[in-house]
């Protein structure tokens, strides 16, 4: 970890004023300190956000939930409103990382979490995301943990977050503040596909700070599940995960939100699968069919081809488990 100057502003305005091309905000530090130790991120200035407040969870009049950037993953997961209205988010949060890391990690920090691709994490290796134009080591290297959806010829790195998968399914807005004022970015537009510029990971300008994430109002009568599949039972990033939210009328699906983790370069909405499911009978067979649609455009590589089938399994099972709750009267 190189040396840097630590700046500890007391207001959002000062924090934004302190930000530059060669600085980084720090919240819990679980991504930034990790990557600074590896030499992957080497900011000259680290701007601390821990004195900025931004730690409230607030129910808005329009039914949305406004989450402060600094609310820890632990606290968000057990917030009564989250547990009641967005259980899929609570489940996703609790499936991520470990108790200790969740106690540190913040909401904004999790949104800004960076890929776990080992080639990205080693400055000695070519990586288009870390060092544009040097090439992608994973393409011809080991790519078991890498994405099959949303990839480009320049980058196949997986977005690692569980929280973001749930937020993608729920629908949310990222509120940012910069020198030019406040912007609201729809969650689905916040993270960028790698395309020709894998180094650009999000729609955040260099002077901007995430202040809040606002969750869309919950779907009336929805049932949901977050299912995470991985090698060991805990403390591991997803090989495939699915956040499924469904509303039903009798046995017919009236609305569906399906988001995927572990298989894509950003928190991934399976919109084709969602569209195909709406209006259909909620049967296991139908879930398996729409799951196929979600991976129609998958681009598997040498070691990650299994993620296509595993991802389909995650969707089918998450939908089934969610719908089973409905039949057991567990929905709110």
């Amino acid at each position: 970890m190189q040396s840097f100057e630590l700046i500890r502003p007391e207001s959002v305005k000062d924090a934004i004023g302190a930000q530059s091309e060669r600085s980084a905000f720090i919240g819990g530090g679980t991504t930034l300190v990790d990557l600074m130790k590896l030499g992957v991120m080497q900011p000259d200035h680290v701007v601390d956000t821990n004195r900025l407040g931004l730690d409230e969870i607030e129910a808005l009049d329009d039914g949305r939930l406004k989450i402060g950037a600094r609310v820890s993953n632990s606290r968000l997961a057990i917030d009564a409103r989250v547990e009641r209205d967005y259980p899929v988010l609570s489940q996703a949060l609790l499936s991520g990382a470990s108790t200790g890391l969740r106690n540190m990690a913040t909401t904004a920090g999790n949104v800004m979490q960076r890929t776990r691709c080992p080639y990205f994490r080693d400055p000695a290796k070519p990586c288009n995301k870390r060092e544009p134009g040097t090439g992608c080591s994973a393409m011809d290297g080991i790519n078991r943990n890498h994405a099959v959806l949303g990839t480009s010829e320049h980058c196949i790195a997986t977005h690692p977050s569980d929280m973001c998968v749930a937020m993608a399914a729920i629908g949310a807005t990222v509120v940012v503040e910069g020198r030019k004022g406040t912007r609201e970015i729809p969650f689905e537009d916040f993270h960028l596909l790698p395309g020709d510029h894998p180094e650009r990971e999000h729609d955040l300008r260099s002077d901007e700070l995430i202040t809040h994430v606002v969750l869309d109002a919950p779907l009336e009568g929805a049932v949901s599940t977050y299912l995470k599949l991985r090698d060991r039972a805990s403390y591991e990033f997803a090989l495939a995960s699915c956040a499924a939210i469904v509303t039903l009328e009798g046995t017919k699906v009236t609305a569906a939100r399906i988001a995927l983790g572990g298989v894509a370069t950003k928190p991934w909405r399976a919109v084709d699968a969602e569209a195909a499911l709406v209006g259909e009978e909620a049967t296991a067979k139908m879930f398996e069919q729409v799951a196929l649609l979600a991976f129609q455009r998958a681009m598997p590589l040498e070691h990650n081809a299994f993620k296509v089938e595993l991802g389909q399994q995650a969707i089918a099972r998450a939908l089934r488990d969610a719908v089973q709750q409905a039949s057991q009267g567990e929905h709110q």
Binding site: T30, V33, V46, L101
Partner: peptide
């Protein structure tokens, strides 16, 4: 490296001492 900070367990290897 787990220590308890203000009642909560945290990984002290990822926490800048100044914070």
């Amino acid at each position: 490296c787990t220590v308890v900070i203000d009642g909560r367990a945290m990984n002290s290897c990822l926490l800048l001492a100044a914070l």
